[in-house]
Computed example of a mutant assay.
Amino acid sequence: MALVKAGVVVLDCAEPEKLAEFYKELLDAEEIHVTANRVEIRSPDGTQLALRRDVNATPPSWPRPENSLQAHLEFEVTDLDAAERRIVSLGGRPTETKDATGPFEERSYADPAGHSFSLRRSVPHGPKMG
């Protein structure tokens, strides 16, 4: 048995309750633990995410060099356009506008608190050919 096992990704933000609503709606997740300074959610596939209060949090500024990318989340989707409409309707915004087509097409966004995340088109996994 491993001495250390992976925990949960934690995003610092000024208003964890509001940011939890964004991710709960985006991931169809549920709250599993709430304190005065932290909200943890879990999506139906078991992915957990925590939002922690930091009143002095400043969002990453990617792609600008000051306070640049600290970490980002990556989500797989089958329909990038539908997912983008959902993100924007929930208060997120696109950050990468170039068209990156192909089998590994991805798009970058910021959540309402400015944290970076990307959507990547999921590629069907079939048996290896050849």
Rank of each mutant, 00 (worst) to 15 (best):
Y109I: 01
P60V: 09
A83P: 12
V55H: 05
P44N: 14
R64W: 10
H72L: 13
D45V: 02
D45M: 11
H33R: 14
E96A: 07
V34H: 11
A100Y: 15
P59L: 04
Q70N: 15
A29S: 10
D99E: 06
V88L: 01
G92T: 00
K98E: 12
N56D: 15
V39S: 10
L27V: 07
D81E: 15
Y109F: 01
R64K: 12
R52V: 07
Y109L: 06
E66H: 07
R53L: 02
A83I: 04
D111L: 00
Q70V: 15
A57D: 08
V77K: 10
L51K: 11
R86D: 13
T58E: 14
R93V: 02
E96Y: 13
D54R: 13
D79E: 13
F104N: 04
K98M: 09
V88Y: 03
S89F: 00
S43N: 11
V77G: 14
F104I: 01
P59D: 09
F75Q: 11
A83T: 03
G91S: 03
K98I: 09
R42P: 05
I87C: 07
H72V: 08
K98A: 08
T101Y: 03
E76G: 15
R64M: 10
A82G: 10
E84C: 01
S68Q: 03
T58L: 13
S61P: 07
H33P: 01
L27M: 13
L26N: 08
L26V: 00
T58I: 10
L51N: 06
E25I: 00
L26I: 04
K24Q: 14
E96S: 07
E84A: 04
T101P: 10
G91Y: 02
V39E: 03
L90Y: 06
L51E: 06
